[in-house]
Simulated assay, not measured.
Amino acid sequence: MTSRSNRLTSVLSDNRVGLLLLIIVLVVLIGSLKPMFFSPAFVIGPMLTSIAIFTVVGLAQMVVLSVGQMNLAVGGMAAIGAMGSAIVFQAFDVPLIVGIAVGLVVGGAVGALCGVLIAYAGVNSFVVTLAMSFALLGLVPAVYSWVSTGNAITVQTPGLAELGRSKLSDLCIGDTCGPDGVPLILFVAVAAMIVIGLLFSKARIGREILLTGSSDRAALLSAIPVPRRIITVHTLSGMLAALAGFMLGASTGSFTPGIGQEFMLQSFLGPILGGTLLAGGYVSVIGTFLGITITVVIRQGLLLFGVGIEGLNILLGTILLIALSADRIRSVAGARSRLRASRQQSPAKSKEEAVVS
């Protein structure tokens, strides 16, 4: 009974369980008040598309948070990565997979540059990524205006429209088709979650990254190449941001300089609500997905109730402030708990030494 009670307590105290229950309550509440919420074509499909894109954006921020740093250029990396894919599609008519790979390489290269400056020049990640964000804010529109007269690139590559806008209901075996409202692009996000989840849970490099986030000094003493791990997470962040930018371009049918403009807030909301520590050392892929899901559900519900974009931004900003405060409270409480434990152990050790002497 005691072991079952402990397991139940552990499950209920899990942040992800609370998020899942809250999502279920919100879906039932909004759906009961606004039955339109359950429309596969007009609500469920677009909402799942947004969840897929923002989940990848959240993962892009999460991997950098794993070492206690941040990426304020996640939107710009998404824009330049998507632009790289669009340019090779337009200029060289490459296959879909090649264009995606080029975009990932471009985004990863920008991320790697940030990582090198942070790791070897000793500049704070906030300063480096903020500067990169402003640089990309000017560079991306300039390149678009140079390569495209309409300041946008419309791509007709085979498979792109199907990936970005098709649903499972479009895939049929005989007379049996998939469920309506589930976009194919959602599986791109699932694949990214699996890869990142396996990286942190099974791969040695993932454990080294988390140890670097917990204590870079301890990581150095453990012969972990801390500078290289910092470069690794920023490179990975750039690649994931580029993937999210490509997904957004594919879902809308065109690639524009505006890709990534709304990524900043979502990139922090997902991981922080999901339990990823700002100080580094702990990440949650499932939590990031659930954190993104709850913000998208809230946003869609408010839109159905006629709340404007201003009210939506106020609410999302408030949620982020609450999440940041909760993260700080958890950190302080954990530090005090460890301090009390060390103080309790010290008298016991003194008594043992006195008995021995």
Rank of each mutant, 00 (worst) to 15 (best):
S3F: 10
S5L: 15
V11F: 15
V11P: 07
N15T: 14
L20K: 05
I24G: 05
S32K: 08
F42R: 13
I44K: 08
T49Q: 10
I51W: 06
F54W: 14
M62S: 00
Q69W: 03
A79K: 10
A79Q: 07
A82T: 09
D93R: 15
L96Y: 00
L96Q: 00
V102D: 04
L104K: 12
L104M: 11
A109Q: 02
G111E: 11
S133T: 01
W146R: 08
S148Y: 11
T149H: 07
S166Q: 02
D175E: 14
T176S: 13
T176E: 03
P179R: 07
L186R: 07
F187I: 08
A189K: 01
A189R: 02
V190N: 02
V190E: 00
I196Y: 00
K202Q: 13
I205S: 15
R207Y: 14
L210H: 10
T212Q: 01
S214E: 14
D216W: 11
L220D: 13
S237C: 11
G245M: 12
F246W: 13
M247C: 08
L248N: 06
G258C: 03
Q261K: 14
Q266N: 13
G270C: 02
G270P: 01
T276G: 03
G281A: 06
G281D: 10
G281Q: 11
V285T: 08
G287W: 06
T295W: 01
V296L: 00
V296C: 01
R299W: 03
G301V: 07
L303A: 09
G306A: 09
G308W: 06
G317C: 05
L320M: 04
I322G: 07
I322R: 00
A323S: 14
S325E: 09
G334W: 09
L339Q: 14
S342T: 12
K349D: 15
K349N: 15
V355Q: 13
S357C: 10
